[in-house]
C-alpha cells in the first residue's frame, strides 16, 4: 500500500481575490522505499503538493491518504499526531532553531511528541548522517552541508514513513548537494521510507526512482525507473 496517496487532488488559492489553481486533479502514490523527485518550474505546484502530502494543508478537491488515513477526516490534533508519527520535513534553508544546540534541534520533534529517550535517538540519527560528536554545537558553528544533515537527522528522528524534502540542496554548493542527495537516497533505503523530493536539480532527478514532472499544477509525466 502506498504511504501517501493523492487521489485527483486539486488545490485552489485566492490571491488578491483571484483564484489560482495551484494543483489540478493530481493523482500520485508513493510507496515505502521509493525515492521520488518532483520537478518543474518555480510556481508549478511542487511545494503545494508537498504540503498536502505532509498533512500541513487540505485539498480543495480530491483526497489525500497518508498511510491509509484520509487527512480530511482529521482535526488539528489528529493532523498533528499524524505528522508526528508519519512525516518528516526537510527544508531548503534548513530551518534550524539557532537558539538550540544540534542535539536539541534534532530531538525537538520527539520532545514535542512527548517521547522518552530523545537524546539517545538523536545521537543515533546524528550518527546516521555522519555528524557524530557535533551534537553540542550550535547551528551557526556548522557549515551549510552540516546544517542540512542536522535537518535530515531531525526529519528522521521519529522514523517517519514519509520524508518530504523541499529543495534540500537549493542552498548548497553542487558537491555538498550531491552528497546530501546520496545521503537521502541511502537513508530512504535503510529506513524504508517513502521520500518525496521537490527539486530543480538534474542530479537529484537522476538519482530518483521516479520523476514526477509538474507543469501549471498538473502532472505532465511520471518517469519510473
Amino acid at each position: 500500500m502506498a504511504i501517501v496517496s493523492l487521489q485527483t487532488v486539486s488545490k485552489d488559492y485566492l490571491t488578491d481575490g483571484q483564484p489560482v489553481h495551484a494543483l489540478d486533479s493530481v493523482s500520485l502514490d508513493v510507496n515505502r522505499g521509493e525515492f521520488v523527485a518532483l520537478v518543474g518550474r518555480s510556481g508549478c505546484g511542487k511545494s503545494t503538493l508537498l504540503n498536502l502530502a505532509g498533512a500541513m494543508d487540505f485539498p480543495t478537491a480530491g483526497r489525500v491518504m497518508i498511510d491509509g488515513v484520509d487527512t480530511s477526516t482529521l482535526n488539528d490534533a489528529g493532523l498533528t499526531a499524524l505528522r508526528r508519527e508519519k512525516v518528516g520535513f526537510i527544508f531548503q534553508s534548513f530551518q534550524l532553531l539557532h537558539t538550540l544546540t544540534v542535539f536539541e534541534n534534532v530531538e525537538l520533534p520527539l520532545l514535542l511528541a512527548g517521547k522518552p529517550n530523545a537524546r539517545a535517538a538523536a545521537r543515533e540519527r546524528l550518527a546516521s548522517v555522519e555528524l557524530d560528536g557535533l551534537g553540542d554545537r550550535y547551528p551557526h558553528q556548522l557549515s551549510g552541508g552540516q546544517m542540512q544533515r542536522v535537518g535530515i537527522a531531525r526529519a528522521l528522528i521519529q522514523s517517519p514513513a514519509l520524508l518530504l524534502a523541499d529543495e534540500p540542496t537549493g542552498n548548497l554548493d553542487t558537491v555538498t548537494g550531491a552528497i546530501i542527495l546520496e545521503l537521502l537516497k541511502r537513508l530512504t533505503r535503510e529506513q524504508n521510507t517513502a521520500t518525496l523530493l521537490a527539486t530543480h536539480s538534474a542530479e537529484a532527478a537522476a538519482l530518483a526512482d521516479a520523476v514526477v514532472r509538474l507543469r501549471d499544477g498538473k502532472i505532465e509525466e511520471i518517469l519510473r525507473r
Partner: peptide, 16 residues
C-alpha cells in the same frame, strides 16, 4: 512566526 511555523512542521500541536 517562521520559527513557530516550523514547530508545527516538526509536529507541534496548537496547544504546544
Amino acid at each position: 512566526r517562521r520559527e513557530l511555523g516550523l514547530l508545527r512542521f516538526l509536529g507541534a500541536s496548537a496547544g504546544q
